[in-house]
Design a binder for these strands. Structure first.
Length: 772
DNA sequence: GAGCACTGC
């Protein structure tokens, strides 16, 4: 560098940078972050002008004061403050990570958010995307080793990186964005980072959140002496949104929603409407009803009612139809039959609350409900329940009306209920989920003491217990709670532990190629498409794929056909399968195939179809032996082994007749308890491949046990007559089913260096919570 | 004889 001309970063000292210095560097003709420094483009200067307008820009001086002096900062600011794009850039000037070989990470809960933030910031910094500024998401690493110093990524991706590098040494500052969403990955990262700040004094953390409830984060990240982490607040500048409540509670929110939309259409000034509902069916029905009602109104009084178009929006809708939300608002009728201007109504699930932004929305109708996942660890079932939203969700929804100009939000509940009935925050995901993957990740990270681990919200002990129990049966962790070599591999695979185990054992069954496909198909969203007006055609199309021995085999069949018909773009549509889900399965499969290679798992196929199908079903037992059911009675009823849940085959199953023993992929609770994606298995396989789980002394008395007992007797008889035959087993025979006491004992054993009193406290709390 | 809110690795 020529020492005579001033360089943009002259006088910058790491972590002692001031706002004045940064502003000067930003005005500089040379770009400080390129090597060698490049002349800034006109586009860059233009973008800088709009960056200066962002609320967060005005608070740059204060930000640096707080950031320089603290290891952890909680930053609160609503959407539209520019925090996601600007704060990481500010940090870049402070960390000077481009000179130290470290990186700044900024996590997002969703892939698209990580990509779009990285794109925007690369443009603002006048660098090529994927060079100095990049992103990293599941199927795409847009970073360059040694060059990238600002990396946007999904929260799950950072969590995965932590498994290889628990101290996250490559980062100088880690920013967790959208922390208020409390995704499982962000929650775990917050716990890990809190512990990490003690090991790495120079690591800085910024927790960015959009809501009222930053105090919880402040307390969580308080120092040992009780000093709270500093709160930095950015005052947003979105347009005002006027909130209206109903005078009385609405008995039927669907009917009230329709009425409100019609009222807006007739009485309010032009502007599009966003209505939040809970699910696909509800949305389709309401769209049709609104359009019919408006047709009626127009017939009655054509001159005072404008045309309306309803656009449904939910995630399983094909991309092309999702794009309709960007269609222009319909124009007024005329000139022969003049009418008021037209209106667009988007009827959407929660997808429009966070994932998709629709410009031009002026009116929001919020009935106050959404479908939320709930987990019942007792019967190990996750289900979706229509539940009241939280106040922070309601605030988020209302905000969607003020993106382009002042708007209005109609809440279909009373103000009193808003304050007294709604929770302040949505229940965090960690309290509503099956934790088997998460617990395994924690064990892999070296966190053995799951009770003393500091969670923002401690999960239900029974959820932890269920997770440990499953992992132990899968032999991912041993009886001491230590990770086994198998468990280490399972943790490395981006799959549910059962699916990972299935994939790992598959070469032993000589069908790993097919299991790889099935596992990929099971880890993407539903591939079957069944439009309301073409149910029969869809069912007929599905019947052509059906393999009578098992739904897992049907999935394999669909994938094989999909690949064979790759050249035909229309194939998914004409066969009533989701092209998007199949493409996703293809990507998952490719990723898993690379991992199999790394683990030296052979890719093996079988030629004899009959043998192949049998091997696949046997392999399934190795991963899913805890999800086996036995036929009970005559009318398609099954009883799950051990849990003794009465379940029925889901009507979507293509299984022929009703086999006596089945393995199922999921247990869902909708109209009835159903088991879905089901394959026939033989009882001998259960006893042979999962002897510890099917240990008869652990199975409650009943028909299931009697049948297993008689199969066992037959097997033993034939064994006695064949002296050479050794009992083979894929799972150790020493494990036993846990009781809660066992798990408490196990957790106790795990925490070796804990003072007795605190641990006892922890266990006491654990017992207390589990008996509630 | 029915349904799948939404993400993420």
């Amino acid at each position: 560098m020529d020492s005579s001309t001033p360089q943009p970063l002259d006088g910058f000292l790491p972590r002692q940078v001031t706002g004045a210095q940064v502003r000067k560097a930003l005005e500089h003709d040379l770009n400080a972050f390129t090597d060698p420094p490049t002349i800034r483009t006109a586009r860059c200067k233009e973008l800088l002008a709009s960056r200066r307008e962002l609320p967060v820009y005005a608070q740059m001086d204060d930000f640096f004061t707080v950031f320089n002096e603290n290891q952890i900062v909680i930053l609160v600011g609503d959407t539209g403050t520019g925090k996601t794009t600007q704060i990481p850039q500010f940090v870049a000037y402070s960390d000077l990570a481009h000179l130290t070989g470290k990186m700044i990470a900024c996590t997002q809960p969703r892939r698209v958010a990580a990509i779009s933030a990285a794109k925007r910031v690369a443009e603002e910094m006048d660098v090529q995307l994927g060079h100095q500024v990049g992103y990293s998401i599941r199927f795409e690493d847009m970073t360059k080793r040694g060059t990238t110093f600002l990396k946007y990524m999904t929260d799950g991706m950072l969590l995965r990186e932590a498994m290889d590098d628990p101290d996250l040494q490559r980062y100088s500052t880690i920013i967790l964005d959208e922390a208020h969403e409390r995704t499982l990955a962000t929650d775990i990262l917050m716990s890990l980072l809190k512990a990490l700040t003690k090991r790495r004094a120079e690591l800085k953390i910024i927790i960015m959140s959009a809501t009222l409830d930053a105090v919880k984060f402040q307390k969580f990240f308080s120092l040992p002496l009780g000093t709270k982490a500093p709160l930095f607040e950015v005052i947003g500048r979105t347009h005002p949104v006027e909130i209206f409540y109903t005078q009385d509670p609405e008995p039927d929110y669907v009917e009230a929603a329709i009425r409100t939309v019609l009222m807006i259409h007739r009485a309010e000034l032009p502007g599009d409407i966003l209505l939040f509902l809970t699910g696909e069916e509800e949305i389709e029905v309401v769209c049709r009803k609104i359009e019919l009602e408006v047709d009626d109104l127009i017939k009655q009084d054509p001159s005072s009612v404008g045309p309306i178009v309803c656009i449904p929006l939910y995630s399983s809708l094909p991309a092309k139809q999702q794009q309709r939300i960007f269609d222009p608002t319909p124009a007024a009728r005329g000139p022969d039959h003049p009418s008021p201007p037209g209106r667009k109504v988007v009827v959407s699930t929660n997808i429009a609350e966070t994932s998709l932004t629709i410009d031009g929305i002026v009116y929001v109708v919020d009935p106050g409900f959404s479908k939320q996942k709930v987990y019942n660890p007792r019967i190990r079932v996750e289900s979706l329940l229509v539940s009241p939203i939280s106040r922070s969700s309601a605030q988020q929804r209302a905000g969607r009306a003020g993106r382009t100009r002042p708007g209005k939000c109609f809440r279909l509940y009373t103000e009193r209920d808003f304050w007294s009935q709604l929770e302040e925050q949505t229940y965090p995901e960690i309290l509503r989920s099956n934790l088997s993957s998460t617990v395994l990740q924690l064990v892999k990270l070296g966190i053995k003491d799951l009770v003393r681990f500091e969670y923002l919200d401690m999960p239900a002990p029974e959820s932890l217990m269920r997770a440990l129990e499953l992992l132990n049966f899968l032999e991912a962790i041993d009886d001491n709670g230590d990770l086994t070599p198998l468990g280490s591999k399972i943790a490395e695979l981006p799959l549910d532990p059962q699916l990972a185990k299935l994939l790992i054992v598959s070469p032993e069954f000589k069908c790993s190629n097919e299991i790889l496909t099935i596992v990929s198909m099971l880890s993407v969203p539903n591939i079957w498409v069944r439009p309301a007006d073409q149910k029969n055609q869809a069912d007929a199309a599905k019947a052509l794929f059906t393999v009578p021995d098992g739904d897992h085999l049907t999935l394999l069949n669909v994938y094989v056909q999909y690949v064979l018909n790759k050249s035909n773009e229309d194939w998914p549509r004409t066969n009533f399968v989701s092209g998007r889900a199949l493409a996703e399965a293809e990507r998952v499969r490719a990723q898993l195939q690379r991992l199999m290679k790394r683990f030296e798992l052979e890719l093996i196929s079988m030629t004899d179809e009959k043998e192949l199908h049998q091997s696949i079903r046997q392999a399934l037992v190795c991963g899913f032996f805890m999800q086996v059911a036995h036929r009970e009675g005559e009318k398609g009823c099954y009883l799950t082994v051990k849990d003794n849940q009465v379940v029925t085959l889901h009507p979507s199953s293509g299984l022929k007749a009703n086999p006596e023993w089945v393995v199922f992929n999921e247990f869902i609770l909708t109209a009835k308890p159903y088991i879905r994606t089901v394959s026939e298995v033989r009882p001998e396989w259960l006893l042979e491949l999962a002897p510890s789980y099917f240990d008869l002394s652990s199975i409650p008395d009943g028909e299931t046990k009697r049948r297993l007992q008689s199969v066992m007797n037959e097997v033993q008889q034939s064994r006695r007559s064949d002296a050479n035959r050794e009992a083979s087993s894929h799972t150790s025979s020493s494990t036993t089913l846990f009781t809660l006491d066992d798990v408490v004992a196990m957790l106790t054993q795990m925490s070796t260096s804990t003072p007795a009193s605190t641990l006892e406290d922890a266990i006491e709390r654990l017992k207390e919570m589990s008996t509630r």
